[in-house]
Design a protein around this nucleic acid. Structure first.
Lengths: 214, 214
DNA sequence: GCGTATAGTCAGGAGTCCTAACGAAGCGGG
DNA sequence: CCCGCTTCGTTAGGACTCCTGACTATACGC
């Protein structure tokens, strides 16, 4: 049996799951007349778009595609009447994107995560789910620090996050944005209320988080 | 703070990592003159192709694309001189695919997993890596059982797998194919020597595996 | 043999994704 | 104020992806 490191095995598994996500994205997007990229854009615009409209460049960075590709996809969405383009007030070069009512409706309808994967995850015990979530947070944080991911709106990197400030093991953390305690299972990987912390503070928060969670 | 289930959070994280895998696939494949799909094909042919050549349909199922798309991609690889097509001996409809020497060389050169992700995974503790691997196995197994993945060549579903037959906690399992003990960290998600087990036996093996690993 | 199922191909079309070249707006210094 | 540099986005061109639907050819069952 060839020796493969645990990391390599994990990457293989992630790649496999990535393939499932990709094929399910097609299956869900196609009936709605969308491609996966278009559906992803719609979802992003829908998820955190209301207050501060997305710019095209930010969208491209988020989806890990070039601005040229993003421009293509946005045009397709505009042709379909789902998205509106507007010049930014404060920057005549930039383009702001907002959903039309039709777009918002379709985004809401398409937003559901792939059932098969959710059901598969539900076969894990709660402890396994928590461990998986923590592992993913660690990985995503590392990827962000190495520049592979533009912005990761993780609780553990957020200005409002206070890890392990309560004795209650169910809800040890505090979110200063909503001013409420919460637990590991509510830790978010992509919070709309995220506010970036400076590097040193984020590192300190992370250290406190892992130290007490070990 | 909106309530999201742990499963939904995990899917979000997996999707995020999937995006990284995708963008890195482009970065690695492009300099070699390949697209991600072509690189994946080459990798599959290289990983377990020597003995029993791949058929086009199997490749398509593995990559979760239609046979038509697979046919396109194979043609591209044939044009580039990396792959050879041949009618199958035992089935005049089927096409068998083998790597040319150039293809094998390129596949070997391109085979490395994305560094950034490996490094990110190395920030996990060994215990976290093991937990992550087990969680992924559980998920992939569930996806296979629901038909989302064609074949998952997991140790835990293999005819040769004997879970927890030794006292040594480092190497509790036995592989009857290589006739040697091994540990959790060597459990494979995609073993070339995999042999399918029948459903009942696989279920029994799985139960023994999770019961003792809990 | 004959029909049905299966393996793969072809044609057509929208879309993805890249690079490269470009226009247009902001920003800074002289 | 205006020249150059940078940044945001678009266009153009090309290879490829990915689908559906129609098709050919072989295999298999009765």
């Amino acid at each position: 049996m060839a020796e493969l490191s645990a990391s390599q095995q994990v990457v293989a598994g992630l790649a496999r799951i990535g393939a499932v996500l990709k094929s399910q994205a097609w299956q869900r997007a196609w009936p709605a007349g969308l491609t996966p990229t278009q559906a992803q854009m719609l979802a992003l615009l829908h998820a955190h778009g209301a207050g501060r409209p997305w710019r095209l460049g930010a969208l491209a960075a988020e989806l890990a595609i070039t601005p040229a590709t993003a421009s293509d996809a946005v045009d397709a969405l505009v042709r379909k009447g789902l998205v509106r383009k507007r010049r930014a007030r404060d920057d005549g070069r930039a383009v702001e994107l907002t959903l039309t009512p039709e777009g918002a409706q379709l985004a809401a309808a398409t937003a559901a995560w792939p059932d098969a994967l959710l059901r598969a995850l539900d076969t894990l015990t709660p402890a396994e789910q928590a461990a998986l979530l923590r592992a993913l947070m660690t990985v995503i944080r590392a990827l962000q620090r190495s520049g592979q991911i533009p912005v990761a709106r993780l609780c553990v990197a957020c200005r409002y996050f206070r890890p392990h400030v309560y004795a209650d093991p169910e809800r040890p953390h505090h979110c200063a944005f909503v001013d409420a305690p919460f637990g590991d299972r509510q830790l978010r990987l992509d919070c709309p209320d995220f506010a970036a912390n400076d590097a040193d503070a984020a590192e300190a928060v992370w250290q406190r988080f892992v130290a007490a969670s070990g």
